[in-house]
Design a protein around this nucleic acid. Sequence first.
DNA 1: CGGCAAGTTTGTCTAGGACAAATTGCCAAT
DNA 2: ATTGGCAATTTGTCCTAGACAAACTTGCCG
Lengths: 309, 309
Amino acid sequence: MNTTSFNIAAVERETGLSKDVLRVWERRYGFPLPDRDHGGERQYSADQVDRLRLIKRLMDRGHRPGKLIALPPEALAELAPRHTPNAAPQTPAGDSEELERLLDLIRQHDAAGFTQAMQQRIARQGLQRFVQDTIAPLSWQVGQAWEAGRIQVFEEHLFTELSKRLLRQSIAALPRGQAKPRIILTTVPEEQHVLGLLMAEALFALEGAECIPLGSQMPLTEIARAAQAHAAEIVALSFSSAFPHRQVTPLLQQLRALLPADIGLWAGGAGVQRAAAEPGVTLLRSLDEALQALHTCQQRGDSTMTAPV
Amino acid sequence: MNTTSFNIAAVERETGLSKDVLRVWERRYGFPLPDRDHGGERQYSADQVDRLRLIKRLMDRGHRPGKLIALPPEALAELAPRHTPNAAPQTPAGDSEELERLLDLIRQHDAAGFTQAMQQRIARQGLQRFVQDTIAPLSWQVGQAWEAGRIQVFEEHLFTELSKRLLRQSIAALPRGQAKPRIILTTVPEEQHVLGLLMAEALFALEGAECIPLGSQMPLTEIARAAQAHAAEIVALSFSSAFPHRQVTPLLQQLRALLPADIGLWAGGAGVQRAAAEPGVTLLRSLDEALQALHTCQQRGDSTMTAPV
DNA sequence: CGGCAAGTTTGTCTAGGACAAATTGCCAAT
DNA sequence: ATTGGCAATTTGTCCTAGACAAACTTGCCG
């Protein structure tokens, strides 16, 4: 087919594994062992990149690199449906077959059909149930399929992009919330996944909260500035499962230190499932918890609540 | 105010300057010279981070780090309105005052007012002129203001997010294009700016092309797979001015090598202004050129055209 | 079976050296 | 006075190899 090779920066781009990690793995585990070009620089093969991508997928799922690398290549594919730590698979009524049909549309690359089918579901279910019973389980299934290698990366991108458009459209159609609290929604740098944030925004907006969407990848200092400039009561962040979980806690601590004490800090998404509770930070481990936190906040008229465990 | 300090990873996040660059600058220029913590690790002050952010801004504008670092801090602020290499400032009719009023709404953090005023302009101008005469010059002005430090980063994020929503809404309202060509729109990893891509998508969709939006940050190998799976005739990429321009050419060459020869590769955005022409890659240095390329492609029924200079 | 201590795994940081690509400066020729 | 080409400088990225702390496992004891 194609015998292009990748330099270390390209591999970092393709797999999400940092250059430091690639070099230290080579030193420790002897894999990957790339060729060297004339100047002594690493040249990775497409095979190595594929295997690294798979390993990264499984690591996001909770596996450890030392074990994975020791495993023979064939065994890797088998590992996919491993323990699902605590993320409840979400059980919508009995229409998991219809969700499967929606996924099939994505697998057939039928963007128009998918969008149309989803729009029908919005009309039928209403926005809240659409978010909780359609988008959430669907994106969970896509994540599963992706980790198992049963779906291509670009198919996942198509699903995400189309779903984001549907959600944004629905949010735009809502009357603009004027009620409290005022919530800033964004993600930290390195975190580009925004679908979870949009789900939260839809739910919050439905409850009348004033949502200020600031896009993704905001430097922490800018988040703090934005919170003060907009006189927000809450800063809501989202972390995906692909986000390096080691960084979540220090990031939240650092942002907490930058924010005035009377501004609440909420963090949700698959990336905080494994995170430990901290003072001043409300962890939202599910959309239900997010709604619950909002209600509590609205009733108290007070944003500096602690996590409801 | 706040005496938080930043480790080298945090500075990379906040400024976009890589760890390697931060270390080599310290060695070469003696700036920044951060404190060290107990373990000997760099701890940057907020002042240093601010100065680095400013330097990065000016570098994206074409200045060179060696000169900038030598300059006294006060002189830096003066440099902003430097030569504007070749990006024509775009001269919409005489309504630059009204554009200024729109920007003021952003500066006052009035999201609702901004969205409403923009929606009026869409209704008044129609989508094509809205893209070319409103969004394009506005985002150019925002970029200018950002580089000059006359606008906060979070204000720029708000503008971008609201504009993206408006564009996506307008695109969704268009009849779905069934005509040729079929165009995949995306960005490479590290490039998260998507507004330019949406502008192009709006224009292409208006001409009846079938646009397949795949979101941002697609690994190159996935772009190639997507192009084949969707039987696309064109792959359109966008590069912002913040994208490291050294990487643009090798990236385009690598993707060109991964793509079948009969699939056209178009690259646009401020990031390609300084790029050199290459065989097999069509550089779109303006929205007009993009439209022109589309027309040529539609007339020929052939996508493998070379750049019209 | 729970909890704590010791051991292992893992990512990120450090230092300074090297090199190639991009840019600039200089000089000659049109 | 501008253009072309060559040399010098600037600049980002890659290299090796060592170190350490946080996170995770394991094993032991109650």
